[in-house]
């Protein structure tokens, strides 16, 4: 942000703060309150005792805050395995997702080349049709990937929806930029890396965020493909802990049955899941939240 844009923004603020701004802000703040209230409630539940939560489920501040629920989560040795595995999945998986998605999105942003349309339809079709878990499992077995983290990493390579939004963003970029680069004799990948990608920062940040959250929340593939106790992702650990605390009684199975505060533990897992994402969020947010008058993307 240059000094001039900053100054301009301030002037704008002084000069043009109209009634409309007030109305918009008012509406948005009301919305924010409607969202914050239940979120604070979840935070409060995670810090409350079971009795208090049952008596006053809508509380905003627990009267006797306790970190019992968090303690229960973190005393569990599996949490560490969970963080380790999930971190691996995110750190290797997301770059893989981004590489596959962006290169394909740019490559197919023009379909006038031989086979282009065919390939694009082929990709689209996978959004509508999928074969289910059995063929996927057989495939992973055939590739000898079960019980290896690679199965989880590769099973989720390109999300067709993210591919489409990335592609349509790239298509909206002015052609002139690509053309001029071409005239300069740049190869496609040069154009891709030095022209397209820098111009696509907002959508890259968005898709990166989406992939990161998906990877962070990943558990199903790990459950079915991995079957290894030393490689369970965080969400699977959290799910198990919540379920441990809510042992299915209705199946008439005898077993150890210790009353646990399921809602409290559940709320704590939400906080534990959200916090790291929220720390990482602002770094990406700056790319898609911009002032109208600031942050020109044109070089």
């Amino acid at each position: 942000m240059t000094a001039t844009t900053k100054k301009r923004k301030h002037r704008q603020l002084r000069d043009r703060f109209e009634l409309m701004d007030g109305i918009i802000l008012f509406f948005l703040i009301i919305m924010a309150i409607m969202i914050l209230f239940p979120m604070v409630n979840v935070l409060a539940l995670s810090l409350a005792t079971q009795k208090e939560a049952a008596e006053n489920p809508l509380m905003l501040f627990p009267s006797q805050p306790t970190i019992d629920n968090f303690y229960r989560l973190f005393q569990d040795p599996r949490i560490l395995i969970g963080y380790k595995t999930t971190l691996l999945i995110v750190l290797i998986g997301v770059p893989l997702n981004m590489l596959l998605t962006t290169s394909l999105a740019y490559g197919l942003s023009r379909t006038s080349f031989p086979g282009g349309k065919f390939l694009f339809f082929g990709v689209l079709l996978t959004m509508l049709f999928n074969g289910g878990i059995v063929p996927m499992y057989l495939l992973m077995m055939e590739l000898k990937l079960t019980k290896s983290l690679l199965s989880v990493l590769l099973a989720y390579g390109v999300n067709t929806f993210y591919f489409i939004i990335t592609r349509s963003y790239m298509m909206s970029l002015p052609d002139a930029l690509v053309e001029s680069a071409k005239i300069d004799g740049a190869a496609e990948w040069r154009i891709f890396f030095s022209v397209i990608l820098p111009l696509s920062k907002p959508i890259l940040a968005t898709v990166l965020l989406f992939y990161a959250v998906d990877r962070w929340n990943e558990w199903y593939n790990a459950m079915i493909f991995l079957r290894r106790n030393d490689l369970i992702p965080l969400q699977l650990v959290l799910r198990t802990i919540v379920m441990d605390s809510n042992i299915v009684n209705s199946l008439s199975i005898a077993g150890p049955r210790v009353p646990r505060f399921t809602e409290g533990i559940q709320s704590a897992t939400i906080i534990v899941t959200m916090l790291p994402i929220m720390c990482f969020f602002p770094f990406l947010q700056k790319y898609f939240v911009k002032g109208i008058m600031v942050g020109a993307i044109k070089a």
Binding site: T101, V158, W189
Partner: peptide, 11 residues
Amino acid sequence: YILILPGIVWY
């Protein structure tokens, strides 16, 4: 083609 190859192979 080289650019889209990894994505297509994955698909």
